[in-house]
Write a protein that binds this DNA or RNA. Structure first.
Lengths: 170, 170
DNA sequence: AATGAAAAAAATAGGAA
DNA sequence: TTCCTATTTTTTTCATT
């Protein structure tokens, strides 16, 4: 994917040692290559047996189990979950909501509020005009509206700006 | 050999042209309360045993297993995955990017473009001024910028507006 | 410290009622 | 659906490098 990016006229010589798509693995934390492959395998299928994983990383089942235990204890793997097709569960209406908050709202307040509403599937503070973006998922538009009203009722929320998801592409 | 769903085989002459695996979603929302609780339990911990789940929904382990099998076959549960703390794996920089597109860009084009870039973790078309929102996740700010540049180079993209995630609250 | 092998305990996968 | 059972997997224990 080498895209000609010549927009800049500054013809500073490019550093020849800099690989563009450097997959530099500085090994954050203390995961080795086997740990990474175990994590990848579990992300792919969290219910496969340790023996199966072991076969793909050339380790015995107990050895894999110990590493998984260690990864969980270290907080690298935080849990295992079922991947559900939300549309099949009926909560098919989605929205992104920008939250504008009062002057000295802190992230903890937003977080606490987010946890109160089950329709909130994600929340984060952001750069830009808004203070936070939350993702909502609801059964239908009426449900979404109701959830949004509840959010707007939070004392620190001064204004919201929503966009509704028309279709999910990924 | 074992056809689980033959309960109502009317002895009407079999239609030879009938696709066997007609994924006829006959009842997209026909999960009963127990199914929902099983799904919730698995979302909470995908590696707990069927017996444990059974204890919480007052069902035997084999009964739970059959329901899970059915939920998977129906495409409601699409898989099981490990939940990983992304910051421990390196891709810690996130952004929401609004995409403004040329006049008659269709969703398929956006979808194809989204698939080309590994940094895109989600993409959807939305109401409002922008045509789509994509979520990016990258190793660091430089990586994010590079991914954004690649996105902006798509021929149908006229303009983008990004906000960077400061911290994830959920 | 980390691994593999073996044994014990637990879970799973089907079958029958 | 539950019950039952053979098979597989998990988990502990122990010996090895």
């Amino acid at each position: 994917m080498n895209d000609p990016q010549d927009g800049e006229t500054l013809s500073r010589e490019t550093a020849p040692t800099e690989p563009l798509s450097a997959h530099a693995e500085p090994a954050p934390g203390d995961l080795d290559e086997i740990d990474r492959r175990i994590v990848a395998a579990l992300m792919n299928d969290a219910r496969q047996s340790f023996a199966t994983i072991g076969a793909s990383v050339a380790l015995s089942a107990p050895a894999v189990k110990r590493r998984v235990d260690r990864l969980r204890a270290a907080g690298i793997i935080t849990g295992f979950t079922a991947v559900v097709d939300p549309s099949r569960l009926g909560w098919t209406t989605e929205a992104f909501v920008e939250l504008f908050c009062t002057g000295r709202t802190n992230p903890d307040q937003i977080q606490q509020a987010a946890r109160k509403h089950p329709e909130v599937t994600a929340a984060c503070t952001v750069t830009g005009e808004a203070d936070a973006i939350v993702q909502l998922r609801a059964k239908d538009m009426a449900h979404l509206e109701q959830a949004l009203e509840r959010l707007r009722a939070e004392p620190f929320v001064t204004r919201t700006k929503s966009v509704v998801v028309l279709s999910r592409l990924t």
